[in-house]
C-alpha cells in the first residue's frame, strides 16, 4: 500500500489501488474452515497453538461452518467415502475460496496407493497450494499459507469481476 501520508503530513489519506486494498483485506483476515482429517490435522493444530501461533497471519479464527470461511486446508488423507463430503463442503463455501492440500496424502495420496483413498484431492476439488511432507512441519504449513497470500496478492479484480 502506498504510504503517502508521511510525505504529505498527517492528512489521514492513503492512496492505493482497489486491487491492492481488496487483496490486503483478503490475506489479512483469512478464515480457514476447521476441517482436520488425519495426521496432518494434528500438525495444523500445532500451527494454531501457542508455539507457532497462526494468528500472526490473521488466521486464529477457525470457522466450523463452510459459509463463514474462505480457505479449506485439506489436512490428511481423503478416502473415497469422504470425497463427496469434501466436495459438498467446498460447494457450500462462498466465493472467493481457496484450497490448500496439506501433506502428501492430500496432494497425491502419498504412501497409500490403494483402493481406499482418492489419489490426490485434486480429483475432487481444485487446489491452489500443495504442501509436501508427511506430515509437513508447521513451518511448512506457514510457508504454504504465505505462498497462498502471495498468489492472492497477484489477483486482479478485472479478471474475476467480469
Amino acid at each position: 500500500m502506498g504510504i503517502v501520508s508521511s510525505k504529505l503530513g498527517n492528512l489521514g489519506v492513503v492512496t492505493t489501488t482497489l486491487d491492492e486494498a481488496v487483496n490486503w483485506a483478503r490475506t489479512g483476515a483469512m478464515w480457514p474452515l476447521l476441517f482436520g482429517l488425519a495426521c496432518c490435522a494434528i500438525e495444523m493444530m500445532s500451527t494454531q497453538a501457542s508455539h507457532y501461533d497462526m494468528s500472526r497471519f490473521g488466521m486464529e479464527l477457525n470457522r466450523a461452518s463452510p459459509r463463514q470461511s474462505d480457505l479449506i486446508i485439506i489436512a490428511g488423507r481423503v478416502s473415497r467415502k469422504m470425497a463427496p463430503v469434501i466436495r459438498q463442503l467446498y460447494d457450500q463455501m462462498a466465493s472467493p475460496k481457496w484450497v490448500i492440500a496439506m501433506g502428501d496424502c492430500a496432494s497425491c495420496s502419498g504412501v497409500y496407493n490403494n483402493y481406499a483413498l482418492v489419489q490426490g484431492v485434486d480429483e475432487v476439488i481444485p487446489v491452489d497450494v500443495y504442501i509436501a511432507g508427511c506430515p509437513p512441519r508447521p513451518e511448512q504449513l506457514i510457508h504454504g499459507i504465505l505462498t497462498l497470500h502471495e498468489k492472492i496478492r497477484g489477483d486482479r479484480i478485472a479478471e474475476w469481476a467480469t
Partner: peptide, 8 residues
C-alpha cells in the same frame, strides 16, 4: 483425466 481440477 482422473484429476479434472488439477490444472485449474
Amino acid at each position: 483425466k482422473h484429476k479434472p481440477f488439477a490444472d485449474e
